[in-house]
Design a protein around this nucleic acid. Structure first.
Lengths: 212, 212
DNA sequence: TCCAAACTGGACATAGAGTCCGGCCATGGA
DNA sequence: TCCATGGCCGGACTCTATGTCCAGTTTGGA
């Protein structure tokens, strides 16, 4: 399919964008006739050439629609948020030749933004923590920091990750607070049972060594 | 110049990229024949259509070079650093039709990174202000201070005194901690019942105003 | 595709939190 | 001296939160 003249035509532009945006952007060329993917650069999902386009990316084919569509937000199955644009690419005669779709993963940027906003006045201005009325917030902060560190959203954390987070929370004394466990469970997107299970494992004088 | 068929051909793709990357990316279409700019989206410099390409962006025209060039770093006059890619776009016959150049301003990201690393250590290394594992001690402290203030030993405190102390403890969030009440009771040399009684009175939306 | 490990949601047992109440003791007025 | 009163005590009691357990389901790998 690489020898499709349309792919040959548009590939350089696609490769350029894919190269510029590194691993955070996926560039897809759709065939507007067959509604299938002609080529993909930096695939983020498992779709490949020949697969149906799905996703309604081709809505833009509506003749009354503008040639460039977006940016709009798309959600991946694993929770990543994408900023997407589509463009109808035309041949010399003005007929649709391909549909270009660029999907930019904004998760890393949003994580960075989250870190940024996590700092700011609060850190400095926290005069006397008093007793952390907002231990709640602290839980979010610990979880959030960890997520940012390892670059995975909460839902994608591994068992080991969760153990590590719980370790930090435990160390921070969070579980000495009333009603803390359910809050932690929610923050970790996990059930109360699981929290107790992991906690037991963590507290056991046993086997595994836990990273902090 | 907008009616140049080459611009018509490539514009949608350019607009799409420009739209996706917002104000941080400049998309330029060069005419490889005249070494001039055909079109610009999100211009970051003052260059416009018809201006000479300058910048050696067209080095890529070397026939032995690959069609996609970069990303490489460029420096703007005002100090901004760009990540750039260029791509040679060809017509149906394989002849160079235009040179696409996308310049991504990495300054905002680098600033963010700088902030991040400046604060970096703190985030990770925050040894954990602990969670006042010694809230216990804090209780003693509050009670002790009060006793010193009014010069009466704990056993001689009046009802009002006790209310005041409980007010402070409450405000400090002590009662959000598990098992705190009995500790407080002991610190006040008073029974658990009494603490709950006073606390109820304190929390009631009622009568007396309590000094803090 | 299949399996084992991991997670879930709910049932359950128990501890802790908070309420109530009868009785005790100190104070103060007659 | 005696009683009335207000406040505290301690223990019984209820209800909520905590922690455990288990069977059923999901999920990530081989």
């Amino acid at each position: 399919m690489d020898d499709d003249p349309r792919v040959r035509t548009w590939a350089p532009a696609c490769r350029a964008v894919a190269a510029l945006l590194g691993p955070y952007a996926e560039v897809v060329l759709h065939d507007p006739g067959t509604d299938r993917i002609m080529a993909v650069w930096n695939p983020m999902s498992t779709r490949g050439p020949g697969d149906p386009s799905l996703l309604g990316e081709l809505d833009a084919l509506d003749p009354s629609a503008p040639d460039v569509f977006g940016p709009y937000e798309k959600l991946l199955a694993d929770g990543r948020r994408l900023s997407s644009v589509s463009a109808i690419l035309r041949d010399a005669d003005g007929r649709p030749s391909a549909v270009l779709c660029v999907n930019l993963d904004r998760t890393p940027l949003e994580q960075a933004a989250a870190v940024l906003s996590a700092f700011g006045a609060p850190t400095a201005s926290r005069p006397e923590p008093l007793f952390e009325h907002d231990w709640n917030e602290r839980v979010q902060h610990v979880v959030g920091s960890y997520v940012r560190e390892c670059g995975r959203p909460v839902e994608r954390l591994t068992r080991a990750d969760r153990l590590a987070v719980l370790g930090r929370l435990e160390e921070a004394g969070v579980f000495a607070v009333r009603r803390a466990t359910p809050v932690v469970a929610r923050a970790l997107a996990v059930s109360r049972s699981t929290v107790y299970g992991l906690l037991a494992e963590l507290r056991a004088p046993n086997t595994k060594d836990h990273a902090r």
